[in-house]
Amino acid sequence: MRVFIDPPNSMILYDLVERFGHEPLSSMAAIQEMIDNLEVDMPPMNVTIDDVVRGLAYAGVEVPSGIRGRLAVWGPLIDAADAAVIMTDAPFSFGCVGCERSNEMIKYLVRRKGIPQISVGYPETAEQAETVVGMIKEFLEGLA
């Protein structure tokens, strides 16, 4: 199944989803689609004004352009997802997940879609890590 991960650029979540037999839907793959488009020359990411306008499907024009641009990249991933694994309070969310308002909206969009999802907290101890990995494993193995 196609499993959306949040943070969408997390290596750990990408690895776990793949390891337990599913296809992770990540920002890396979405960005690869954009940067490999040879018809667009908008370095570094080839996000165009048309993409930002497409973001209006997820947020209104009064919302800052950076949020609409981000949602234009991730929104379609959520649209395509069959399930989602979400890690909350991750201290690492840099790069393409640098805007907290966009990150909040992503979590909401997943919830609004109503697909199977699991939300785990960021582990600080070995015991918490066992819980996080154990829960994610069970969730992923339980997906049909």
Partner: peptide, 21 residues
């Protein structure tokens, strides 16, 4: 690049994930 700090942070968490796996 902006995602570099993310990789560094995830790298620090790997021993816990390794053990938990």
């Amino acid at each position: 690049r902006p995602g570099y700090a993310q990789l560094e942070a995830e790298w620090e968490l790997l021993p816990l994930i390794q053990h938990a796996l």
